[in-house]
Design a binder for these strands. Sequence first.
DNA 1: CCATATATGTAGACACGCTACCTAACATCC
DNA 2: GGATGTTAGGTAGCGTGTCTACATATATGG
Lengths: 112, 112
Amino acid sequence: MKSDALRGHLDALLLATLDGGQLHGYAIIEALQRRSGGALDLPTGTVYPALRRLETAGLVASEWSTVGGRQRRTYRLTKAGKRALDAERTAWREFTTAIEGVLGGGPWPAQA
Amino acid sequence: MKSDALRGHLDALLLATLDGGQLHGYAIIEALQRRSGGALDLPTGTVYPALRRLETAGLVASEWSTVGGRQRRTYRLTKAGKRALDAERTAWREFTTAIEGVLGGGPWPAQA
DNA sequence: CCATATATGTAGACACGCTACCTAACATCC
DNA sequence: GGATGTTAGGTAGCGTGTCTACATATATGG
């Protein structure tokens, strides 16, 4: 998958991943791989800054914990984040509807 | 619709629009509006450079003509463009499958 | 005459995902 | 003891594609 395709949809992916419960960054990356059937393999340089952006925007909140001597920052959706997720899902449907209206299933008549 | 969402999908839209027959730039913008149900209203500063990029890549070809005293540059798909369109449609299906696997229809079990 | 629609185009800004790199603890194998 | 791999978090800076804003020109309608 070409990387630009994801532009503007990453926030929706991260919020949706946290919808099932809190996760730490590394686990989010693994969850995205699993749920996408291996199609999404996001680098940490993409995910960590995006999570900080979402936290600054108030859509997720995080807490530090230590598990087996390793530091973990666990993220969870805020209420605003849940609302944002709903909006993202709606936007996604509108987006795909618009694109598929153009992509169609094959050739179109020139001036329908 | 947020503008970044389109990133990486514009080429597919333009190629698909030309799949029904040759069109000039302005008509392509109108066709995109029509086919997307009004959701897509691309500025000329987006479409014209993109068409030149596609022409440089050999996916479309263009010819000048004059209609009613106005200059028109009419674009059509090349064979490479048709192949590229097929590839774009396949990529689109893979993309939406991946995203929808993550977005799902609602909450997921934490560790399926 | 002026506004609007038709039609094409360029220059520069900006957002954001990616590459590349760094740190650190623990586990395993030899 | 050390090499390697996995888990875990992070930053700096780049690339690039879309957008904003602007420029040009003809035809039409008021």
